[in-house]
Design a protein around this nucleic acid. Structure first.
Lengths: 130, 130
DNA sequence: CGGTATCCCTAGGGATACTG
DNA sequence: CAGTATCCCTAGGGATACCG
């Protein structure tokens, strides 16, 4: 991101206004980060290819981008082994692991409430008055 | 968008692969939805303009889009009063309210861990080896 | 293996009107 | 007030190819 601030130095649109959890959302729930964190949390230390294989449909470019970002945010740790062929392993950090309970809660919420969301959608779509 | 459905069983790229909370993330943590839900949860029943004013920088178009989506998902309820001038009030549903504890957890996490994220970023950026 | 380097492309917003 | 209607625009991915 060598961006050339088009029109402002201040963060442009700011969803964080009056919403204290917006920064967390950016870090943890932006595109692809949740699957990555989840996978690392569930299956432990893994190599690049393993992540690639588990997180279907992500391209290496994007996987690298997200991994770097998560590394910078202190959520994951990258370890490089200068062997031949090279080996790199990713693992979740202690900080990243603090998300565990949160993820568990989310999973619970999903189990009990996703069906309700589906029902709500069905109802909404079935209403002819729309 | 007056449309109904347009569902398509997500033929596109699917981050949900092997990540059970991905659907929740789509519903609750996609752009602008968190601030909307948060605001509605904190300040209760509100009119369109109030939301507009509290969630700085959101445009009416996008606010409408997200509100409709959240309504369809059963997270919020829209009530229309055919007065002059017209009045519309939005409130969080019971289903939406079940997110309360989750949001609280997230806020807690933010309080104790966002500083660590900042520190990690600083460290990462300070390392000349990059 | 573990990534870069390019090119490309479109959906999702933003800005700016306008209306019932 | 509570939205629509347009137009526009770019950042964020995807696809593909290549490298140490």
């Amino acid at each position: 991101m060598t961006g050339k601030a088009t029109w402002t130095a201040v963060p442009s649109t700011d969803p964080a206004e009056a919403c204290p959890i917006a920064p967390v959302v950016d870090i943890v729930f932006s595109r692809w980060t949740t699957p990555i964190l989840w996978t690392l949390n569930m299956h432990g230390r893994q190599r690049f290819v393993e992540l690639e294989r588990r997180i279907t449909a992500i391209t290496p470019k994007v996987l690298t981008q997200r991994l770097r970002q998560l590394e910078r945010d202190g959520m994951i740790l990258r370890t490089y082994y200068p062997e031949v062929p090279p080996r790199v392993e990713y693992e979740i950090t202690e900080l990243g692991r603090t998300l565990g309970p949160l993820f568990a809660n989310l999973a619970d919420w999903a189990t009990t409430n996703l069906p309700k969301v589906d029902a709500a959608r069905h109802d909404y779509d079935a209403d002819p008055a729309r």
